[in-house]
Design a binder for these strands. Structure first.
Lengths: 168, 168
DNA sequence: TAAAACTTTCAATAACTATTGAAAGTATAA
DNA sequence: TTATACTTTCAATAGTTATTGAAAGTTTTA
């Protein structure tokens, strides 16, 4: 396979994967493009490579910065902004985990805590089933949260060796 | 908080969480409804509780069966089909992991393996960057795949004790 | 201060995804 | 076999989300 075909396939695949994880298709494609780019790219470059409008490119570059997956690079004497992706895939994974934990897991935990306060006839099956489901979910979410938190705080070496054990 | 309000909130929250994970909103809501229901529910029940059409209810119940998250329950002498959700949250989590691994991680691994074959001027920066990014991603994906696989094969006790260690 | 080189915004619109509901299909009972 | 009680399908439509591109905004340079 030639490089151009490979690039195309990768950008496509990353975009599709993104979609099934609730991530905007173009955002995932811009990320893919920057992941395999040896140089920082400008908004213009992104527009050209992906055939998207200026507004779209700009908005998704900003979103990626927001997620902490890419950063601006300013070149001395140049006015244009360039963008580079973090290339260390373990750092990328950690960052995605960190953000989703903050954006989704934590809010869900708050809601589950609220829902644990539901009063109602304790004798009723409806109330019992609700309370039990919420309680179990809260337990699982708490465990997941602690596990992720520990993983994220750990340095790479610690994580890898722990996971090597998990993997036998 | 009263039970009805709590149910409403939970169904709502689960639907929203689902959306941000690429899961159809109604599918997640039907799942939430069944998770907290002490009894199996019929299509009619789901239609009423969530105010959705027959077609929608039917399609999402089928999708949940497909994901292995709910099952049909037939009552002797009754023609209608009833549905129950798996209530053990760890089993639910495992099932979701199993399905997503099969539907997303494995296909992505196949693509990355294909992309490792990209030829091109080894001296070129472009090719080098591509090859390196794909290689690193493939390594990470392989590790994730093995880890998940081990987790899924393990019984609950093994898993919990391993993760307790990870969590200190 | 004005012009140039850029970035950001946002209303309009396109593209995509979910939902409806009536019709068709299927299985059971009489 | 026909009627009944359901389930499933699918074309039409509604609803949602993404994209465009021109206009407004910002920063730098001269």
């Amino acid at each position: 396979m030639q490089l151009e075909e490979g690039k195309e396939k990768f950008i496509q695949a990353w975009g599709t994967l993104g979609s099934s994880w609730g991530i905007n298709r173009t955002m995932a494609q811009v990320h893919a493009l920057l992941l395999i780019s040896p140089e920082a790219l400008s908004t213009e470059d992104v527009m050209q490579e992906l055939n998207v409008s200026r507004g779209n490119a700009n908005m998704n570059l900003r979103a990626l910065i927001d997620w902490g997956l890419i950063s601006k690079e300013l070149r001395p004497g140049e006015r244009k902004e360039y963008f580079v992706a973090e290339k260390d895939m373990w750092k990328v994974a950690k960052q995605v985990i960190r953000e989703r934990r903050k954006r989704e897991l934590e809010p869900m935990l708050r809601i589950l805590e609220e829902l644990k306060q539901v009063e109602g006839n304790k004798a009723e099956k409806e109330t019992q089933a609700f309370t039990e489901a919420i309680g179990n979910l809260h337990d699982l979410a708490t465990k997941a949260d602690k596990t992720l938190n520990t993983m994220l705080r750990a340095d790479e070496h610690w994580f890898l060796s722990s996971f090597m054990k998990l993997m036998r």
